[in-house]
């Protein structure tokens, strides 16, 4: 996966498969501005302690008939290459929290990519799931919520979802979102 936004989409799809009705996404920097944090919390069916402990194993999946589950394993690989890690916390019946950290200036940290497009596809395909998104860096912050911003009758409507994504894109841009800059670009910019 070439962008962090693709990992985000993959984790969001896991939440949808887990039967979530609400998903909270946090994307931003930690207090010191050293790390990029991606956190996805859902209220889906959750996992047993055994399943949660094996969730990052590429040869473990809960999908019947399949032998591999690569999504979280790929996320771990990207995070660890960028000096970070992935943590999975889950309570059966209550939901799951996936937290990935990446060193912001690691040259192996991929760019964020098309976050608004990622959320647009998720909202379009899962109109029944409430998405709560927060973007927070030292340059600015932005918050969006599908339940608050898309009227119930318009959820799943193409026009409403595109309008939501356009607001999201504009709001994030205003709050300092730079989709194409990976750790390498940040490092070079800091040095020069």
């Amino acid at each position: 996966m070439t962008e962090i936004s693709l990992h985000l989409l993959d984790v969001l799809e896991n939440s949808a498969k887990a039967g979530a009705s609400r998903v909270r996404v946090f994307l931003g920097e930690d207090g010191e501005g050293e790390n990029l944090i991606l956190e996805v919390e859902d209220d889906g069916r959750g996992m047993s302690p055994d399943e949660a402990s094996r969730a990052l194993d590429p040869f473990f999946t809960t999908t019947p008939g399949k032998k591999v589950g690569l999504g979280l394993a790929l996320l771990r690989s990207t995070a660890e290459a960028a000096g970070g890690s992935v943590r999975v916390r889950s309570v059966p019946g209550n939901g799951t929290v996936v937290t990935a950290t990446f060193r912001l200036r690691s040259v192996d940290r991929p760019p964020l990519g098309d976050i608004p497009g990622t959320l647009q596809t998720f909202v379009m395909c899962h109109p029944g799931i409430e998405l709560d998104f927060t973007w927070k860096t030292r340059k600015g912050s932005f918050h969006a919520n599908t339940r608050q911003q898309i009227p119930p009758g318009d959820r799943g409507s193409l026009d409403a979802v595109v309008a939501f994504a356009e607001k999201l894109s504009a709001g994030m841009k205003q709050a300092g979102f730079e989709p194409d800059k990976g750790g390498f670009d940040v490092e070079i910019k800091t040095r020069s």
């Binding site: 799809e13 790929l74 098309d114 647009q120 596809t121 979802v161």
Partner: peptide
Amino acid sequence: GTCGIAAGARETLLAIM
């Protein structure tokens, strides 16, 4: 799925929309 996302399904879906 993970395979679809890695192969560019998001861009495909955005183009369809």
